[in-house]
Amino acid sequence: MSVILAAVATLGAIGAGSAGILYLVSQKFKVEEDPRIQEVQDALPAANCGGCGFPGCAAFAAACVHAESLEGLNCPVGGQETMDRVAAILGQTASKTTKKIAVVRCSGSCEERPRQNLYDGASRCSIAAALYGGDTGCSFGCLGLGDCVDACTFDAIHMNPETMLPEVDEDKCTACGACVKACPKDIIELRKQGPRSRRIYVSCVNEDKGGVARKACNVACIGCSKCQQVCPFDAITMENNLAYIIDDKCRLCRKCAPVCPTNSILEINFPPRKETPPAAKEKEVPITA
């Protein structure tokens, strides 16, 4: 019994002594930190994705606290709601942000864009892209090796095994931009999520001339500029044989998609069209060569 008591007493004394030392040291070397940083950090989603441009949520929190205004500071994961909360903590106003989402601008599935050679190197888009134009006739499109999937920390992007194209999970995507950076072909773009998740975009990045692009892929943008002519809001630009819909100008009128001869303009989350699209769509495939 006395042995046990002696042991308890000794260990207790050592413990108390150590605790005392620790306390004194922590008092002496205390680092004064703005308590709001912790508060802000608690309000953040703690994803540490780096989508804000800072290395992790703690750094972003510190940046928010030290910044004069919240202009330009945005947490893409938490969105407006989180930024409003951060603003409330800091007694400032958050800049207005629009919810964005990653969009894969390539529809060249195995069926639409037949493989012309077999890639047999290390399974990374970045390695294949440095080697050559890719295993299809299109040297701009998706390589299908999934660098974007590896880069996503939110499990929001996956390869569709049938099309061999990545697909973004709208519910999980936080627009952190990791996949945009990972893609060596610059196919993925952050676009406005749009009202009720509705959006229209050109799902192609091929800059080849129409004939070449069309030969490589059935759903390539051939640069015919029909969409540009039909757009009532000047929202479509043509550059390098490629149409591009400007997010901020597009009013989702849906006039462009039906005129596209190759169906390279995608409409997401819209109700199905009532009237059948103009007959012109089916026929002639104009090629600007």
Binding site: N117, L118, D120, L131
Partner: peptide, 8 residues
């Protein structure tokens, strides 16, 4: 026949 392409 499709050619195989890989880095050296």
């Amino acid at each position: 026949q499709k050619l195989i392409v890989s880095p050296s």
